[in-house]
Design a protein around this nucleic acid. Structure first.
Length: 920
RNA sequence: GGGCGAGUAGCUCAGCUGGUUAGAGCGCCUGCCUUACACGCAGGAUGUCGGGGGUUCGAGUCCCUCCUCGCCCACCA
């Protein structure tokens, strides 16, 4: 056999970059719309749009996991002859990116206002164009098979056009409106936030009980409870429940608001007041509380503002002089303390009670958000939610794991309007213009030069759109929408799978579905796969700020990309989080590293032994020439293929609707990985490779057969593994000397293995494995040194098929001898020794007089017999129970009966063995 | 406050519609540098499947309950 030049160690660093470049140069990942069935081609399209990472992001394990999952799916479908498109891109990430630049400015002692809007946007643009490609480069480094010719960016001119089109369309359809209401305000980012961007967290705070004296009888007062006493300066009423006997007589009277010294009424409101909570009387602060805003609107109350955008006390709109001079400009939290002190001095503080309640924080900077009255643009969501709900209910979209479907439905059923305007500078400017003269509002696709009504000067709205307003168009804006006639739209929309983390189910996934229906009239994808989160050993989510992160590029440098990918995919149960130890990369990534090394060594052995002479494709080998081991490994391969297919599942629903039986099928990546691993390691390497050693050494015709089966089996195994470990499989696959014109040039687009029904499980080889295992166990039990060969004999007299067993063991003697260092031949010796019972009924007698401890063997046999007896008793009881035989499925009963027969025979033999060993 | 999920070997988890003697990886113990692989090979130990009750011929799997974690949602000031 010809030696190969494969180094003894796989060195990922030396091959990964050049392989990746080869793939790109060959255009392996570039999708061709003309080949899509939808556009007249003959390939089914398979499309995944990448959740665009923030343009300023650097790769972390979360990206690593998310993108590896997508890559595995895309590579799998590409091999299944789909026209596969994985569309990459980045998100301009409004607040997040603006914050990055603001931090830079802060370091220079400046704010964005020092620069001015244009200079700030320019600076951000420059920053993004310098550093923005980093994450995409890093994705290349971990082997992502994206179509980089289609790389998109949410703030590109093309996608900006889509954003503007979407805004204008929704406005034309009456689904966008300007609202004057209480929204969540981040006083650090100086912008409004959507409900989703204002995250809840439970906090320990106080419930302050304040006494407001009655105007006409200051000796009497009404006590209200509040968690935010500083807002009391903006109170316009005190509300009580109309049925509350404690306060009924006070309704209609007025109280004098302390500090502010304004007279406000006591009103009755049955919706907004819970008589059970606090004192049953509630202060009404319409400008600084959403609930109070509702009540204020119901009762036509004024809405004074006492907080500045920066979160300091100020006399805003309608506030007159409610905030006393000494408080103006004071931060809200300090003002809270001061006001409490002032109220205390005035005798208006009844008591303070500790109270845990939910406080909302900005999802970007964690500042406590303030409910604040302001003018914002909103999208009316109810009409958009309907088709998005229907699609899931009708199984045109599935969400995996299943439990998230309920969460999705619940959110959409209770959806509230979406605040889409942000008081930021980085983003898509709202396409609304105001006329200075006639106050006409213009919403337009193209910037108007003048007011279309009066020709007056127009000013564009200062605000930008929520980042997610561009994200929700991603599945089609990236394909060329609003130009509906593009080949890409025709060929690739709708897409197939959307792979992301559950955290952005509402932010992004649900809105994309709504957007798909709103603008394309069709669902954007049929499967949402929500994978778990990467956590450390304490189950804390990995993050750079917590310092418990793992840099995927570190892992790549240490163990290679394949090891990284294998580890995360193998550990990814459906919906389960992935636990990795940032303090012990060795331990965390050993599964991947070990597997890659094993695969490499399998390849080295196999390629060396197969040699470089061309091997005939398996289909050219006459089945009659195949040996027992050949048939066994080919049967095992079929099983492995079937398992991988079942684990990966149907790629898409038939006719656009998921059949109930397929609704939860597939996307079980850890099972897929395990099936492939088990095949190459525990079957191909542990057994088949060993079985060929003698045959290859012997040469001749049979060696040719072995070479062909080795090459074929390894070829298929590499293909099964390519989606997970694309680099090493490529290196090994291209060296297989298979003479087959259909094989293709790159494994990445070689055909996915198909089952060959002519190969079935091979029980004869299993019998041999059984014998080898038993002998190995015996050797270990008696600590027989490896160099010490033993000789055993076969007694097939009790076998179900004696002739077959004798033939099998005669033929496989050399193999057994090699693996178990024990020959099995000759007739039964009279010598005392250990007797191994095989499932066929035959036994192997190992005559090791003087070594075998008869008493020990006797005890072992007795224990075995007892165990078998117990099991057999239970089995017999089950089978004589009519409840079981009548009700259990036929195949179960049948299997139990077969087992009964087998066990009974075995029991009899075992009893014999015990008698001969123990002499009773 | 509402909803959901998890608790299976020392650790991380499989175990899909109830049906052979509950599995894998890592770790651990014993023996091996057997010319593909010590990142390996061979053998081994460890589980009253969170507690309790129930349904069933049969429960890790279904129901109830309790305990312990975790997640999502929420305008009780």
């Amino acid at each position: 056999t010809a030696p190969t030049d494969l180094p003894s160690q796989f060195d990922p660093a030396s091959v990964e970059s050049s392989l990746y470049k080869e793939w790109i140069d060959a255009g392996l990942f570039t999708a061709d719309p003309h080949r899509s069935r939808r556009a007249g081609g003959d390939h089914t399209p398979f499309v995944i749009v990448m959740p665009p990472p923030n343009v300023t992001a650097v790769l972390h394990m979360g990206h690593g996991l998310n993108n590896t999952v997508q890559d595995v799916l895309v590579r799998w479908r590409r091999m299944c002859a789909d026209e596969a498109l994985w569309l990459p891109g980045t998100d301009h990430a409004g607040i997040a990116t603006q914050n990055v630049i603001e931090k830079q400015l802060a370091a220079e002692g400046k704010t964005r206002f020092d620069l001015g809007r244009d200079a700030f946007v320019q600076r951000t643009t420059d920053f993004v164009s310098e550093t923005g490609g980093t994450i995409l480069e890093q994705l290349r480094a971990i082997g992502a098979s994206c179509d980089w010719t289609r790389t998109a960016y949410t703030l590109s001119p093309e996608l900006s056009r889509a954003v503007r089109e979407a805004f204008v369309q929704l406005h034309e359809r009456g689904l966008i409106y300007r609202g004057h209401r209480v929204i969540h305000w981040c006083s650090r980012c100086l912008t409004s936030l959507s409900d989703e961007e204002a995250e809840h967290s439970e906090e320990n705070g106080n419930l302050y009980h304040l006494r407001y004296p009655l105007t006409d009888d200051p000796a009497k007062s009404i006590t209200i409870a509040t968690t935010r006493p500083e807002t009391m300066l903006a109170d316009v009423a005190v509300a009580v429940h109309p049925d509350d006997d404690r306060y009924r007589s006070l309704i209609g009277k007025t109280v004098t608001l302390p500090i502010a010294n304004v007279e406000i009424p006591i009103i009755a409101d049955s919706i907004g007041v819970d008589p059970e909570f606090g004192t049953g009387a509630v202060k009404i602060t319409p400008a600084h509380d959403a609930n109070d805003f509702e009540m204020g609107s119901r009762h036509n109350l004024p809405m004074p503002v006492v907080l500045s955008p920066e979160g300091t006390m100020a006399n805003g709109a309608d506030a007159g002089a409610r905030v006393p001079p000494e408080l103006i400009g004071i931060d809200r939290f300090e003002a809270r303390e001061r006001i409490v002190q002032m109220l205390k001095h005035l005798g208006a503080l009844a008591r303070i009670e500790s109270h845990t309640h939910a406080v909302r924080h900005c999802y970007r900077c964690d500042t406590v958000v303030e409910p604040r009255l302001s003018d914002q643009w909103f999208v009316r969501m109810k009409p958009l939610a309907e088709p998005a709900l229907e699609a899931v209910r009708e199984r045109r979209i599935r969400i995996l794991p299943e439990r998230w479907e309920a969460v999705y439905i619940n959110w959409l059923e209770n959806i509230r309007d979406w605040n889409i305007s942000r008081q930021l500078w980085w983003g898509h400017r709202i396409p609304v213009w105001y006329c200075d003269i006639c106050s006409q509002i213009t919403v337009a696709r193209e910037d108007p030069a003048a007011c279309p009504t009066c020709g007056g000067r127009v000013r564009q709205d200062e605000d930008v759109l929520d980042t997610w307003f561009s994200s929700w168009l991603w599945p089609f804006s990236t394909l060329g929408w609003p130009d509906k006639s593009t080949k890409d739209i025709e060929a690739f929309y709708p897409t197939d799978d959307l792979v992301t983390a559950p955290e952005i189910l509402f932010f992004w996934v649900a809105r994309m579905i709504m957007g798909g229906f709103a603008f394309m009239g069709e669902t954007p994808f049929h499967t949402v796969y929500l994978h778990g989160t990467v956590r450390d050993m304490k189950h804390v989510k990995m993050s750079k700020s917590l310092g418990n992160g793992i840099d995927p590029l570190d892992v790549r440098a240490l163990y290679g990309t394949d090891a990284l990918r294998y580890t995360v995919i193998a550990g990814l149960g459906m919906g389960a989080d992935v636990m990795l130890d940032p303090n012990d990369l060795e331990k965390s990534f050993s599964p991947g590293r070990n597997f890659v090394t094993k695969l490499w060594n399998i390849g080295r052995f196999l390629l060396t032994n197969v040699g470089t002479d061309e091997v005939a494709p398996l289909r050219n080998i006459d089945a009659a020439r195949l040996k027992r081991a050949d048939r066994w490994i080919l049967g095992s391969l079929n099983t492995a293929i079937a398992e991988c297919d079942a684990a990966l599942g149907p790629a898409r629903p038939t006719d656009g609707v998921w059949a109930p039986t397929e609704l939860r099928a597939g996307l079980r990546l850890s099972e897929y990985t395990e099936s492939a691993r088990r095949f190459v390691w525990n079957e191909l390497a542990d057994w088949y490779l060993e079985s060929t050693k003698g045959r290859l050494a012997a040469g001749g015709d049979d060696a040719e057969v072995a070479r062909a089966v080795l090459a074929h089996t390894f070829d298929a195994a590499l293909r099964l593994l390519q989606p997970i470990v694309p680099f090493i499989t490529d290196v090994l696959w291209r060296r297989l000397p298979i003479a087959d014109d259909d094989r293709g040039d790159f494994i990445a687009r070689a055909a996915w293995p198909r089952q060959d029904d002519s190969f079935k499980p091979e029980p004869e080889f299993d019998l041999v494995r059984e014998a080898i295992n038993a002998i190995r166990q015996l050797r270990a039990d008696y600590a027989i040194p490896p160099g010490n060969r033993i000789h055993a004999s076969l007694d097939a007299s009790q076998s179900a098929d004696a002739a077959r067993d004798e033939a099998v063991f005669a033929e496989e003697n050399e193999f057994i001898n090699r693996l178990a260092r024990c020959s099995v031949n000759g007739s039964v010796s009279a010598e005392a020794g250990a007797s191994i019972l095989l499932s066929s009924g035959a036994r192997i007698v190992v005559p090791l007089a003087g070594i075998i401890d008869i008493e020990k063997e006797c005890r072992k046999a007795k224990t075995e017999l007892e165990k078998l007896d117990a099991q057999l008793t239970a089995l017999n009881a089950r089978l004589s129970n009519t409840g079981f035989t009548d009700r259990a499925p036929a195949h179960v009963v049948e299997a139990e009966r077969a087992k009964q027969t087998e066990w009974t025979t075995r029991r009899a033999q075992l009893a014999d063995k015990v008698r001969s060993l123990c002499g009773t």
